[in-house]
């Protein structure tokens, strides 16, 4: 088996999940300049909601086909995450719109802790095993094995991202959101309700987070109350890598980070003569983050150097 090719396959899979989450960070940053550190927790809530709905429906013996059950779980997760993100913005961030930049940032961290604890009360402290729902087909391509689940994740992520790009670049609402991000005061003069545009950014980001939550849970077959923390940090790294505030950057950053991480995990054992193992995988994301912040803080596709906290 070809390790290099195999890690590329794994990296692209993971990277498309990072990309979906990174888009949520970047959209919110683009429109209000806030790093929404609670976004990873929205992914977690999405995963756990889907977990409850899917395992509940399967356990109730409804006779529904598995694909439909998963679809219902996904819709439920999207609905819950959208309402959640809408409320978070309205309750926690909107009152601080005119405050110093540090205040909403700290609030976001606080919100993240609150959500983790709420999730712990609802779903408990244990790792919840998510059953393997689909018989997994394996295809061998050029020495690497690709599962049908990996293909499904990448295709679904690509489809969702294409949909997002169409929405942001081709619709009136999307143009209004870009206008608000560029100049909120003038956007108001055009008749755009800025609060609505901001809410839409949060809700769309949350919907993507729900999709990512279901994906990551299905991929690793596990869900738990603090699963959003590291995932959120990595997606944030991906957004910074691509250039925060830039949609294409978030997608590119996500994919790159996934591949860097997978290759790093695949080769770290050989490179350190067996001293460090693949469980050091998480190190690479933060190594990337620090490198980007030192050498190219505006990211790969970003234009402005971030002067906003």
């Amino acid at each position: 088996m070809d390790i290099f090719l195999q890690q590329i396959v794994n990296g692209v899979t993971l990277g498309s999940i990072y990309a979906l989450v990174a888009l949520g960070y970047t959209m919110v940053y683009g429109i209000i300049g806030l790093i929404n550190f609670a976004h990873g927790e929205v992914v977690m809530i999405g995963a756990l909601t889907a977990f409850s709905v899917i395992t509940g429906l399967l356990g109730a013996d409804t006779g529904l086909p598995v694909g439909l059950v998963v679809a219902i779980g996904l819709v439920a997760a999207i609905a819950v995450c959208s309402v959640l993100a809408f409320s978070i913005e309205k309750v926690a961030y909107r009152p601080l719109r005119r405050a110093s930049r540090l205040a909403p940032l700290i609030t976001a961290i606080g919100m993240s802790i609150v959500l983790q604890n709420v999730a712990m009360m609802i779903w408990g402290r244990n790792y919840l095993r998510f059953p393997e729902l689909f018989g997994t087909e394996r295809y061998v391509v050029g020495g690497a094995s690709i599962t049908s689940l990996q293909i499904a994740i990448v295709l679904l992520a690509a489809g969702v991202m294409a949909l997002l790009l169409v929405m942001v670049h081709k619709t009136r609402l999307g143009t209004a959101m870009r206008a608000t991000a560029q100049n909120p005061e003038v956007a108001g003069l055009m008749g755009i309700n800025i609060n609505t545009a901001i809410s839409v950014a949060f809700v769309v980001g949350a919907a993507l987070a729900a999709v990512a939550g279901l994906m990551v849970m299905t991929y690793y077959e596990v869900a738990y109350y603090h699963m959003g923390f590291i995932l959120g940090l990595k997606a944030f790294t991906a957004a910074v890598l691509g250039g925060i505030g830039n949609l294409a950057g978030a997608m590119l950053g996500g994919l790159l980070l996934g591949v860097i991480e997978a290759l790093g995990a695949g080769y770290i054992g050989d490179l350190t003569f067996g001293v460090l193992g693949s469980h050091y995988q998480d190190v690479f994301a933060f190594f990337v983050l620090i490198t980007v912040l030192i050498f190219r803080p505006s990211g790969l596709l970003g234009e402005r150097v971030g002067d906003r906290a």
């Binding site: 143009t175 870009r178 206008a179 003069l189």
Partner: peptide, 19 residues
């Protein structure tokens, strides 16, 4: 002037007719 700098000319004009 308050031009949306990254929107195209056509998009800027479309925003004028947003309502």
């Amino acid at each position: 002037r308050g031009i949306f700098r990254q929107l195209t000319v056509a998009e800027n004009l479309a925003m004028g007719a947003f309502v």
